[in-house]
Write a protein that binds this DNA or RNA. Structure first.
Lengths: 275, 275
DNA sequence: TAGTGGTCTAGACCACTTC
DNA sequence: AAGTGGTCTAGACCACTAA
């Protein structure tokens, strides 16, 4: 009697037990779970059954495993908080690129050229991109795709779409990799007298496609967050439509805003029209 | 030779094939996949192997299965877009509750009392809730928990936390279920001269816990989006801290904002201080 | 009741990691 | 080389659904 003879055994039971051990801290994040053989003996089941139990935990995002290695409770790295301040105009308007990079270095984060790979191509506009940019579906638009890494590990992809008439000939679509971050792109628009003024972000989450699993090297049980961003100038010209695919466990998004007041807004609008 | 003798068989292969059939539209959303036995024959493998293939698709959120029923490609219901306008002051300030409900009915959506269950309790404040509300951790706060359904199916939970000093004795913490939606709660604060003015929303996504799977009746392979909302009055008093758990496949979040400009904001602030 | 998916056993074999 | 997790077979049995 190993004090384990109260409930029906089986994969679900084993998974629940292990999960409890992880949540209680008995097995700390990054810690090793018992080996398959040990669990086989402990629960008196087949290796296959144990494997099924582990599988459930993997799909729930609770553990990862390496063949030949072992099974480990997943680390919960602190979420990188993405706030609206990341688009601060000061970052790309007032400082030049070098200063911008210098700032990143000074702030303790390493700036590493290899942290971001970039490819620029002319592609036929998807339905979404076409609608956002206000061009016919299938017409050529520039696609600037980046894969961003943190300490070597991919964290997200970001693909920006531009109207060729806006960016043709600028360094934005120069195949030579430019400066990292949105600052780089926004600076270019600023210099083109297309200063970014406001934007719209749309978020949703889902399980990744096999392609996404591969490019982002996602562990089993890791969802992705899809971010669709449209950037406008003050006169509502769309200068960029961007789609990002983010590893869910690495980010959180933060938005602060005043509650809208349609009644007052309408009144103000009417007033403005009269004057 | 059924034209299926080119690549190594196995669960992954079968899963890939089925996935391709779903994505190509060969099997439409909601459509039935071949039975296990049919796939066994087609691929010349064991039922167990086919089951493993299906398992992968389930964990990827691509299919669902009912024991005794069959395996079906998952429906992709249109995402309900949640924008900042859902907090429009007009909804809870200018109209009374009845009008608010009438409006929902008129707009074509059914208002059904059973769409939302509600429980109100005094609970010790969690660390997060305490920090947000500015009370000591573990001190009593009101927790108002709702489970929201759409056509009978749970879509999300939402738990609001309040300072007892704010809401004690109001209908907000009356155990009788009140009106649905944030409008109901905000109206109460408005009447208490604690008018909601601005808020902060934080989003992240992850796989659900077993409890969440149960209360939201989540299919395998369905992530959740966690929404943490803090609501302030104009003088920065926190009146509500709320946590929502959403089925990822049912919602998208939408935010529109002006790009911040710390340089100008600082200048304005300095000016104001001088005057 | 026939057909469906779900769980488990028993055991072979493979791929990878660690020492 | 020994130990780890991963895949697959073969077959028994169970639980649920639909006609």
């Amino acid at each position: 009697m190993t004090a384990k003879d109260k409930k029906p055994p089986g994969a679900q039971r084993i998974a629940d037990d292990l999960r409890a051990e992880i949540e209680s801290g008995e097995i700390e994040p990054g810690g090793k779970l018992p080996t398959t053989r040990q669990l086989v003996e402990k629960y008196g089941v087949t290796p296959e059954t144990v494997r099924q139990a582990i599988l459930r935990l993997k799909n729930a995002g609770a553990v990862t495993s390496r063949q030949g290695g072992g099974v480990y409770a997943r680390n919960r790295p602190p979420l990188k908080r993405l706030g609206m301040q990341r688009y601060d105009k000061a970052k790309w308007r007032d400082s030049d690129e070098v200063a911008f990079i210098a700032d990143r270095v000074a702030s303790g984060r390493e700036y590493n050229r290899t942290d971001q790979t970039q490819t620029v191509k002319l592609v036929p506009a998807s339905r979404e991109a076409a609608a956002a940019l206000g061009v016919p579906e299938g017409s050529d638009v520039y696609a600037r795709a980046r894969l961003v890494r943190e300490k070597g590990e991919p964290t997200h992809t970001l693909t920006s779409y531009y109207r060729p008439s806006h960016v043709e000939g600028t360094r934005l679509v120069d195949p030579t990799p430019g400066p990292a971050g949105a600052g780089g792109g926004f600076r270019v628009f600023y210099e083109l007298s297309l200063e970014p003024d406001h934007m719209n972000e749309e978020l949703c989450a889902r399980m990744p496609t096999p392609t996404e699993v591969e490019t982002l090297q996602l562990p089993q049980g890791e969802p992705v967050v899809v971010l669709k961003r449209t950037t406008y100038t003050a006169d509502d010209t769309v200068i960029e439509y961007a789609v990002g695919i983010h590893c869910a466990s690495r980010f959180s998004w933060n938005y602060s805003f005043k509650l809208p007041d349609s009644a007052r807004d309408n009144a103000e609008r009417a007033e403005r029209q009269e004057s």
